[in-house]
């Protein structure tokens, strides 16, 4: 059981670092998805650990929310790209001091 959780933690951390280091908004988004998936893995593993299906249900909900989030997120990225001709998250940095 521990190995699943450790794998989940490792994937989550990699996702984190990806979000922090990549600049292409789409890749950043993919890293966010990677983090969500890592969480899902932990949920499913814990569902098996505890012998009830609540964890799986939660993972299912996470997927649904992730789908909604991706739809909106990608739409936003497209809108930004349309106006700024760039998909770099660093270019959208006008809201500052």
């Amino acid at each position: 059981m521990t190995q699943y959780i450790v794998l989940s933690a490792i994937l989550f951390t990699i996702g984190c670092v990806g979000v922090l280091t990549r600049r292409n908004a789409i890749v950043v988004f993919m890293c966010v998805e990677l983090m969500l998936n890592a969480c899902n893995l932990a949920f499913v593993a814990f569902a098996r650990q505890h012998g009830n299906l609540d964890g799986q249900i939660t993972a299912f909900f996470v997927m649904v929310v992730a789908a909604a989030e991706v739809v909106i997120g990608l739409a936003i990225i497209m809108t930004i790209f349309r106006t700024r001709r760039s998909a770099s998250v660093d270019d959208a940095s006008l809201l500052k001091y």
Binding site: C16, V89, S93, L94, L95, K96, Y97
Partner: peptide
Amino acid sequence: LRRVQNGFVRSYALSLL
């Protein structure tokens, strides 16, 4: 201190982490 508010999402995410 306001220099911290640099507009880069990734900087904010770093503090979040």
